[in-house]
Design a binder for these strands. Sequence first.
DNA 1: GATGAATGAGACTTCATTCAT
DNA 2: AATGAATGAAGTCTCATTCAT
Lengths: 192, 192, 192, 192
Amino acid sequence: MARHQDDEKRTRILQSAIQAFGEKGFTTTTMKDIAEQADIAPGSIYTYFRDKEVLFISAVDTVWKQFHQGLAAILKEQETFSSQLDAMLDYGFDLLKELHPLVRGMYQEANRLNLFHKNLVKLAKQLSFFFERADEDKYTLSRFDKRNRMYLLKVWISGMLFTLSSLPFERIDGEIERQKSVIRKALLVHTP
Amino acid sequence: MARHQDDEKRTRILQSAIQAFGEKGFTTTTMKDIAEQADIAPGSIYTYFRDKEVLFISAVDTVWKQFHQGLAAILKEQETFSSQLDAMLDYGFDLLKELHPLVRGMYQEANRLNLFHKNLVKLAKQLSFFFERADEDKYTLSRFDKRNRMYLLKVWISGMLFTLSSLPFERIDGEIERQKSVIRKALLVHTP
Amino acid sequence: MARHQDDEKRTRILQSAIQAFGEKGFTTTTMKDIAEQADIAPGSIYTYFRDKEVLFISAVDTVWKQFHQGLAAILKEQETFSSQLDAMLDYGFDLLKELHPLVRGMYQEANRLNLFHKNLVKLAKQLSFFFERADEDKYTLSRFDKRNRMYLLKVWISGMLFTLSSLPFERIDGEIERQKSVIRKALLVHTP
Amino acid sequence: MARHQDDEKRTRILQSAIQAFGEKGFTTTTMKDIAEQADIAPGSIYTYFRDKEVLFISAVDTVWKQFHQGLAAILKEQETFSSQLDAMLDYGFDLLKELHPLVRGMYQEANRLNLFHKNLVKLAKQLSFFFERADEDKYTLSRFDKRNRMYLLKVWISGMLFTLSSLPFERIDGEIERQKSVIRKALLVHTP
DNA sequence: GATGAATGAGACTTCATTCAT
DNA sequence: AATGAATGAAGTCTCATTCAT
């Protein structure tokens, strides 16, 4: 079934917003920026989103939804625990690269922080549950009890996100490779 | 003689700035906010700081300087490695609690991100060097080579910072206790 | 379709600017003054002119362009040298009366002075060329060589401009008549 | 009799004001500029001059007074008409070079314009009277009747002042020489 | 008298939002 | 529905003047 033309325009605005908010943060991004990027008139944005705040929240939600869907798909598609882990790692970082700038936008005003935290907890829970199934002799994370594992994951994910955010553009790829390697070799696999 | 520039007043402005930038970020904080908080006229801020940008950087520098000095003092005062570690952990989190909001201010505009990254790397280096001296059978972090240890530290510190930042005020204390405990029991000490 | 940029409105802003800058100079004139005069919101000016500087330059250009066009028209319409001279004198002073205040605006800051000088030279050149054609026994100005004639014209034009500028409003008309008469009877026509 | 120390300081402020107003105009010059130039505290200026306006007017008056005194001295010192004329021309342009920038300051606000006009008329009168005595076959200016001569002088003086003002600094000397020469050779001396 | 920090009104400019077209 | 000009509140910063020292 083909989408409405309206839906297509809404999506275009949303994508522009994700990009712009990501690059310049909430306050610094102007509605005109987003409109130009979406090749639309500034006033038209208001047909689809009540105001800047709502647009921002929609952008963030879109990104997280995308992410959670991606993870779910991986769990379905891959069969063994280890191949799921690999796929999740690859997928996670791919998305990270694209989206980490958006996270910055969440840090501008206190009332948007819980938007981040809520989703962070949700993600940590999923991953924690994921590791619960694994062989605890093999994976470091599996050796912790639920609660501590949640904390480790929350902190670690935040850490990756913000380490990337604070890096100049040209060093992000290198950093991602390094992080993947550290995670795979040193953190995940428990070598006695 | 006329009134002299007042160190106490400078400090008051700086403290107000640290608090305001922390709570509301760089762009959202207005000079008027800071002036009111410091109980002076808006124009007076400019006697002590050239512009908003300089004030912000001064605030960030102040905070980091404070932090590095604190760490240095601990290394001098404490004698054994283990007591140094304990003291650093306590001190680090105490400060974290006070200062994490400011870090948010660094995330508003791309050109201020390196301010954060620079200091993050500096801190990670210090800590990495610290763990190099330790008995590698006892401390997890000592078991990694330099490079990987740096990465772990960078990510971990960022992670703690931003996990705290994203928490509502009343849950910060609890979170800190939990993190301390996780670090002490599970991450630092290597239990084979 | 939305409202289009409105040439009539642009002109209104420009006219207000010409008047205001003329009366109070560049620095003293505020954008609010101009907006009120043009009966629009202050912010609207920026739809048509990037900033105050650009608006000022546009105002000056407008005035000079008008003047040069007027002169060109006279040269086409009038046939004999003497009728051209008469028409130019009348036209020049009519415009002078309207526009001299603006010139004052050019004197406020050093970096805008060349705006005046450039146009002054252009005008002197045109007039110098004009007198070159004339019978040198009849017109004083025709008796000088090119270079000196240029100087005389430059100084004379400046002089008229600023003599008018320094006069209270109600004495301008009288002064103009007097100047016309002096020029016609005593300066232009060479009576041996 | 030695001057008061206060008088010395007043003079220093006045000189700084003349220079600063001349270079940057009335509005753009700040009291701090003048204070620094005079090596004095901003607040101290107010001991000697009620406000910026009064200081400006005092500066202008000082300059004109200086000028009129200079002319008077020349008339006393020189004996023949022709040597007086020469000396006045030299002296006038020397002063012009130093002071023309100040005139710009007079053009910023309408209420300061008459300051200029008043002094201009006074000067023109003096010069007109001067030429009255001369041999009308020899000097162009002497051939006009009083009224017209006044006008010529007013316009011409303004013209020189503002032509100089509109020139970039490095071209002023050349322009002065040229003007002197034009005046001497072509305007003053009447060559039938 | 001198000093210069403090004041606060006011300038330019930006931008989310509205609304005539 | 779409457009983009219009609005005007609000932000940063400057500076003449005051006044505590």
